[in-house]
């Protein structure tokens, strides 16, 4: 599997996700600058990393969504190239229209940086094939704007099409208000596009993908991508 990571000014999880990808692929990851207009032709996965692209000016992800490279990312996504967008990356691709909804300010206005539990809601995608529906995984979040919002119609569509990938839950796997760190509608932590080829999520699987870091629940996502796309 050949993976590329988009780098915006202000990205700061680009190297973390490259390290996690390389651990699973065994191959170097291509770093792609936001001003580039072309992507390598043989890319199987495009990662849009976390960080503070363009200093979060205007709205998180709004400026990055109009970077030159994003036009090409959208074109490839339309052709079925897998896109994994984490944290600020999720904000960028919702602003770019690749996924519906928007990430708003956290309910309590605070930046939250801690491990959370996620309930796996899908195991049919290239990202989640190594999880089982109902699995509870532990992954960190680190954001001030992760409060997923979409209107009732979009939420209904996401739910009825099974496009919620992960929900915030407690360590028992119960999806409760208390386990919702940021006020996201329906405890949504990550969603797919219609064809399940694009995944956007606020939690950082790349930050717990190696036991040396205190946990490796995130690794199964990168291993699944390699297995599916190799």
């Amino acid at each position: 599997m050949r993976a590329g990571v988009i780098v915006f000014p202000g990205s700061n999880c680009d190297r973390d996700i490259a390290v996690a990808l390389e651990q699973s692929t065994g191959k170097p990851t291509t770093m792609i600058w936001h001003q580039d207009t072309d992507l390598p032709s043989d890319l199987d996965l495009i990662a849009v990393p976390g960080g503070f692209s363009y200093g979060d000016y205007l709205r998180c992800g709004a400026m990055a969504a109009h970077s030159p490279i994003m036009r090409e990312v959208k074109r490839r996504a339309d052709q079925g190239t897998r896109v994994l967008a984490v944290c600020n990356g999720f904000q960028v691709i919702t602003e770019a229209g690749l996924l519906p909804g928007v990430l708003m300010r956290n309910k309590d206005l605070r930046f939250i940086c801690r491990d959370v539990h996620l309930k796996v809601e899908d195991s049919q995608s290239a990202f989640t094939a190594k999880y089982k529906v109902g699995d509870v995984i532990r992954v960190p979040i680190a954001h001030a704007e992760g409060n997923y919002f979409a209107d009732a119609e979009i939420l209904k569509e996401l739910e009825s099409e099974g496009r919620v990938a992960f929900r915030y839950c407690n360590d028992e796997g119960e999806v409760t208000d208390a386990a919702n760190p940021n006020g996201s509608r329906n405890n949504i932590a990550g969603i797919f596009n219609k064809s399940r080829t694009v995944l956007g999520m606020m939690p950082h699987p790349e930050r717990l993908a190696d036991k040396k870091l205190g946990g490796n629940d995130g690794r199964a996502m990168f291993d699944a991508l390699v297995e599916t796309l190799a």
């Binding site: 205007l58 709205r59 709004a62 400026m63 109009h66 602003e95 519906p100 909804g101 928007v102 708003m104 919002f149 979409a150 209107d151």
Partner: peptide, 9 residues
């Protein structure tokens, strides 16, 4: 419509 506002919210 294209940048200054996010018309979702």
């Amino acid at each position: 419509k294209s940048l200054l506002a996010n018309t979702v919210i």
